[in-house]
Amino acid sequence: MGTASANAAPGCGHASWYALTSKTASGERMNPSKLTAAHKSLGFGTKVKVTNKRNGKSVVVRINDRGPFIRGRVLDLSKAAAQNIGMVASGTAQVCYEVIG
């Protein structure tokens, strides 16, 4: 993906979720009940609309961490964000995302 992913172009791919309470790359503590996500290159504080392709459900998250570090994955969502789009049980989902602010 290289530097092209740093622009505001929408993307699709595999997302996963995590529920740690460690510090994020932005310096804040990870809170599984907040609507946040990790992305490899989008700026901290960027608002991203994430849509689960399987069920059409969407959630708006704020980027506050770096990752995911598993090949082929585009976003790591907080548990709360994953619940909003119905992907907690499956663990991962095909999603599309777009920067909205």
Rank of each mutant, 00 (worst) to 15 (best):
M1G: 13
G2W: 02
G2L: 08
T3G: 12
A4K: 14
A4V: 14
A4I: 11
A4P: 01
S5Q: 13
S5H: 04
A6W: 12
A8L: 13
A8F: 06
P10D: 10
P10E: 10
G11C: 03
G11D: 08
G11Q: 09
C12R: 11
H14A: 13
H14M: 14
A15K: 05
S16Q: 07
W17R: 03
W17P: 06
Y18S: 09
Y18E: 06
A19F: 07
A19R: 12
A19N: 13
T21G: 14
T21M: 05
T21E: 13
T21K: 14
T21W: 08
S22W: 10
K23Q: 12
T24G: 10
A25W: 07
A25P: 06
A25E: 07
A25M: 11
A25N: 06
S26P: 06
G27C: 07
G27K: 01
E28S: 12
M30F: 15
M30H: 15
N31D: 15
K34L: 14
K34R: 14
L35H: 05
L35T: 03
T36K: 10
T36F: 03
A38R: 08
A38Q: 05
A38K: 01
A38V: 02
A38W: 09
K40A: 15
K40P: 00
S41P: 01
S41W: 00
S41I: 07
G43Q: 13
F44K: 07
F44V: 05
F44H: 00
G45T: 04
K47W: 06
K47P: 04
K47I: 04
K47Q: 14
K49E: 15
K49A: 01
V50Y: 04
V50A: 01
T51Q: 12
T51E: 09
N52T: 07
R54N: 11
R54K: 15
N55L: 08
G56L: 02
K57D: 03
K57C: 05
K57Y: 07
S58H: 10
V59N: 09
V59S: 02
V60M: 06
V60S: 02
V60C: 04
V61K: 04
V61H: 02
I63S: 04
I63C: 00
I63H: 02
N64F: 07
N64K: 05
D65S: 09
D65H: 03
G67A: 02
F69K: 00
F69C: 03
I70K: 12
R71N: 15
R71Y: 11
G72R: 08
G72K: 08
G72N: 03
V74H: 02
V74T: 12
L75A: 08
D76E: 13
D76A: 02
D76Q: 02
L77D: 04
L77Q: 02
L77I: 10
L77W: 04
K79M: 12
K79S: 08
A80V: 00
A82I: 07
Q83R: 15
Q83T: 11
N84H: 13
N84I: 02
I85D: 06
G86P: 06
M87Y: 06
M87K: 09
M87A: 10
V88E: 04
V88H: 10
V88G: 03
A89I: 08
A89V: 12
G91E: 11
G91N: 00
G91I: 10
G91W: 08
T92V: 14
T92E: 09
A93Y: 06
A93C: 01
A93S: 11
Q94G: 12
V95A: 00
V95D: 04
C96G: 00
Y97Q: 09
Y97W: 14
Y97K: 03
I100S: 00
I100C: 04
I100N: 01
